[in-house]
Amino acid sequence: MAGATSPSGDESTTGAKKEPSLWETVRDQLIAEIESGAYPAGALLPSVRELTAKLTVSTTTARKALAELVSAGYARSEGTRGHVSEGPNAGRVDVPPAALDVGPRAGTHAVSGTVIVRTAVRIPVDGAVPGQPPGIDVRSEAAPAEVALALRLPDPTVPLIVRRRLTVDAHGVPSQLRVSYIAPAFVEGTRLAEPDLIEESWQSALAHARELDVKVIESYVTARHPNDAEAAMLGLTPTSCVLVRVDVTQATGPLDGQEGTRPIDYTITVWPADNTRLDLEIRQ
């Protein structure tokens, strides 16, 4: 049986409250921007192509979000021109709460006119974070340069399988975004390539996918500003600070007709920094 070490978090969660899907998150971000006046009545909204590039979501997610804006009365479709804002307070769908009066307040952010109050979150060394059933998005895309180097890709233009997992806390506030870039030869034909919830740690899921031995060969945490996609998914401003954990995992065994050891996964986990505390191992 394959072994797994140093897990970087699992996808098993509890709680009755359903987390918003990725398209709902994109929709609510656009509603907040319309309500704040960023897109007044008559203004042209971002196109499907612009949303996919800016937020790093699929075209299906972007189209669904725009369609829901139309259904809610916040936008109208003008054919080839695109989608046009109907202005603030135009829709009949409730905008997500501007503030949540819950728990110990570790940080407050204003995002396009919406205030998000975040409660304190402790992240154990294995990277697991409590939350509601996550939104999962899986698709193929080219690897960023640092991913191609870490995975030692012979051809960096060949698309990888990219799995995105967004988790929210018990109050519906985004608390973690995880993006995993996985070698196609390793993941194709397995459940990791499907947008389904995985009820075990990510490292265990990697080990069980091909019944190979896997090991984290590199793991580090840095702090920086979020990129556009991270800010949108986590409800942050561009000047916010995020904690970013990178884990590179290798597998040992027969893969793609060859025996050996090679890196197969590059996972980036992002948390809002103002309310997140990482509990690290103490080495004697």
Rank of each mutant, 00 (worst) to 15 (best):
P154K: 09
Y220C: 00
T222L: 09
T167G: 01
A205P: 13
L177V: 13
R178G: 07
S219P: 00
H171C: 00
A207V: 03
T167S: 11
P133A: 14
W202D: 13
V214H: 09
V179T: 15
R152Q: 12
P130L: 10
P134R: 01
V179Y: 01
S175P: 01
V162C: 08
T167D: 05
P124S: 12
V147P: 08
R210D: 02
V179S: 14
I198G: 03
E141R: 14
L192W: 03
E141C: 04
L192A: 04
Y220R: 08
E200Q: 15
A142T: 14
D169Q: 05
V216R: 05
V125F: 13
V221D: 14
G172Q: 05
S204C: 09
I182E: 01
E200F: 04
A193D: 08
T222W: 01
P154W: 09
P124N: 12
A150G: 05
D126C: 08
R191Y: 12
P174W: 06
P174V: 08
E141N: 04
A209I: 00
Y181G: 02
D213S: 11
G131N: 07
V138Y: 00
K215Q: 11
P195E: 09
V162T: 09
I217L: 02
P184A: 02
I161P: 00
A193H: 00
V214G: 05
D137M: 14
F186M: 03
H208R: 15
S175R: 14
D137E: 15
R165T: 15
D213M: 02
V138R: 03
T157I: 01
R191W: 11
S140D: 11
R139I: 02
G135T: 05
S201T: 15
V216S: 07
A205M: 08
P133H: 10
P195L: 05
T167I: 13
A205L: 07
R210F: 10
P159Y: 11
Q203E: 15
A148H: 07
A205C: 10
R178M: 12
E218A: 13
Q176F: 06
S201Y: 12
A207E: 10
E218W: 03
I161T: 15
S140C: 01
A205S: 15
R163W: 05
L192N: 02
P159Q: 12
P133D: 12
V216Q: 06
E199K: 13
T157L: 13
L149M: 04
R122E: 13
R163K: 05
R178Y: 03
E211F: 11
Y220S: 13
V162Q: 06
E218K: 06
I136L: 12
V138G: 04
E194D: 10
E146W: 02
G172L: 12
L160C: 09
A205V: 06
I217Q: 05
A143T: 07
R178I: 01
I136N: 06
Q203F: 02
Y220F: 15
I123G: 09
A128L: 04
L160M: 13
D137Y: 01
V168R: 03
